[in-house]
Design a protein around this nucleic acid. Structure first.
Lengths: 68, 68
DNA sequence: CACAAATGCAATATATATATTACATTTAGA
DNA sequence: TCTAAATGTAATATATATATTGCATTTGTG
């Protein structure tokens, strides 16, 4: 479940803890999502989008070519 | 948790049962998502996108103006 | 109208997303 | 180098997404 959350978070100047607080979840949850080890809910995906100023497609859409 | 799944499904000429089978979930799950009573996982959101040929933003992004 | 397909929805069970706590490791700055 | 902040990660607990079954209601078509 690859995504672009980590890059977007860093671009937004946020730490994992800050993003977690902004989105109402735990730092672990953010960490695992960034590592691609979680399958987040849509609600959380949207909260992350709002927090870092990106769209769902920008953060979570994976083109075939991007799959390792 | 409003979305545009129902319209997209109908445009794609699929029934709830067909979309459920294509995405590997139950018809109930599709029904509840369309009714906005569920908070689906990203994986399922992507499966629905692929099944109906739409992007995450097209199906699940809710503009402020759209909120009832 | 009659009949079948499609949909809504309820109750219970299961799988898994997320919380909580805690500790180890890495990274950045003085 | 030293230290604090940031990050990785594990164990257990809880909340909730999803499955399963079943039946009622709606919708379309002859």
């Amino acid at each position: 479940m690859m995504n672009h959350v980590k890059n977007a978070r860093i671009e937004a100047g946020l730490t994992q803890l800050q993003l977690a607080e902004n989105t109402g979840v735990t730092r672990q949850t953010i960490s695992l999502i960034e590592k691609g080890k979680y399958n987040p809910t849509l609600k959380l995906c949207l909260a992350i989008c709002y927090a870092v100023g990106k769209s769902l497609d920008e953060l979570f859409w994976i083109d075939e070519g991007e799959k390792p």
